[in-house]
Amino acid sequence: MNAPEQAPARIDLGAEFRDAGIGEVLDALERDLVGLAPVKRRVREIAALLLVDRVRQRLGLATEHPSLHMSFTGNPGTGKTTVAMRMAEILHRLGYCRRGHVVAVTRDDLVGQYIGHTAPKTKEVLKRAMGGVLFIDEAYYLYRPENEKDYGQEAIEILLQVMENQRDDLVVILAGYAERMERFFESNPGMKSRIAHHVDFPDYSDTELGEIAQRMLAGWNYRFDEAARVAFADYIVLRRRQPHFANARSIRNALDRMRLRQALRLFESGATVDAEALTTLTEADVRASRHFQQAAA
């Protein structure tokens, strides 16, 4: 740490906020992500806390480097990875994270296949993540109580050590389903005690998923015509009832299949096409989904 500055009596928090440039990140989060109101609120809170902490540090009021490790819980496709990227950016701008990059891994990237394999693997990942955020998806798979020889425990221990001793070098975000994460924390109290912030990601509502679909399409230069839009709203209702529903990820996959159908339709029609035809998904492209057939059967 540098020599303490001459502490000013009053500090303009608004100016601090502007100078750090986190306003833009928070605004972008608000603008770019559909729904997720509670998540956005949590992120805002964390940002505010860190901003205040920074000011307190300058006034000599704060104690030590705050623990910043987090857990993001929620069903698949609820925006955990995307928010982790924004969080890394916020941490970077506030000076809690030197580089602000995100290294996203799962159990396979950390845990080895044989004795002596795990430690170098985990350390290698940790080294790559230094200065940024290590995002471990479905982190609870690291812990397999049914197999006492599982190498996952070794990875957990190395992680715990770094999470404790190198707080300035690395922020760890554990992600996964809420209940499984809860069970993981129960069996790994050491891990639980090192997580400072829990953020819960709710499922998207049907309307929000519709909005997400339209934004995705716009990003690829596609759009629904009116009938297709209505059909897709029906699709969302049907899809949610099916197994393996993964929120925005399911929507993305559905749209990919609809683009395939559109392409085949245009190709087989043999007619000449214009930009309008190339960008429009029709009701038929949507309703050909097997979820409609199953619902009808």
């Binding site: 030197r98 290698e124 080294k127 790559r128 230094m130 200065g131 940024g132 190198q166 070098d169």
Partner: peptide
């Protein structure tokens, strides 16, 4: 050490 972003990893080693 390939693909590192930050010296912390090297300094640890």
């Amino acid at each position: 050490m390939f693909d590192l972003r930050d010296p912390a990893g090297v300094m640890g080693e």
